[in-house]
């Protein structure tokens, strides 16, 4: 689906055809969910936040001036919402959901189609450690590495989304990578 298609859908939604918004959700939900999930490392929380983000975007659609790509605009809302949520959460004391369901820790299932079991185990283990270490990253590094190395956005897009200079984007990416590389090396993962 191209940018034009996004705009068409957006215009339909603005004109009252709210159901058309499901096309936008279907198209971007994986992207949004993955970013949120890597920010908070909690499946349920990520799912709720993903819904919240899509609702905020839907409500803000009339203010979308089409000066940038829709995805970039969506990303900036997503990033800001996650920042706000993190601030809000830091003021609250919460009990992780996985400990509240019959005292049995619940992990969501990863869908992995690789047939090589050994490779699968190594990958799952590596991913687990990687998630732990991403979770321990300072917020700025976690945010920018998720956008760059997990979501695969360009430096320019990241600068636009975060509202910072390109040079700052580069510096943050370098520092974040260095930090993570040292952590993963120390854990024996690389």
């Amino acid at each position: 689906m191209s940018k034009i298609d996004d705009i068409e859908i957006i215009n339909r939604v603005i004109n009252g055809e709210v159901e058309a918004y499901s096309h936008i959700i279907n198209k971007y939900q994986n992207m949004v969910f993955k970013y949120v999930y890597y920010q908070f490392n909690n499946y349920d929380e990520a799912l709720d936040l993903t819904q919240d983000i899509f609702i905020i975007v839907l409500e803000a659609l009339p203010s979308f001036r089409q000066e940038s790509k829709f995805s970039t605009w969506l990303y900036s809302i997503m990033v800001n919402h996650c920042k706000n949520y993190r601030k809000k959460r830091s003021r609250q004391w919460t009990v992780p959901l996985q400990y509240t369901r019959d005292d049995e820790e619940i992990e969501f299932q990863l869908q992995d189609f690789r047939e090589n079991t050994e490779e699968k185990i190594v990958t799952e283990d590596s991913l687990r450690i990687l998630k732990e270490e991403i979770g321990k990253l300072p917020e700025d590094f976690r945010e920018i590495l998720t956008l760059r190395d997990i979501e695969g956005l360009s430096y320019n897009e990241i600068a636009e989304i975060l509202g910072i200079k390109l040079s700052n984007v580069k510096v943050r990416i370098h520092r974040g990578r260095e930090y993570l590389k040292n952590r993963l090396h120390a854990r024996g993962l690389i």
Partner: peptide
């Protein structure tokens, strides 16, 4: 290797339930 691992995370297929109907209902 570090970046490769991050790319692995990118390819990770997370199971996400259909949030369309829920999201639109929540919006209403």
């Amino acid at each position: 290797k570090c970046i490769h691992l991050l790319n692995e995370a990118k390819n990770e297929a997370l199971i996400i339930p259909d949030i369309c109907s829920n999201t639109l209902a929540l919006y209403q």
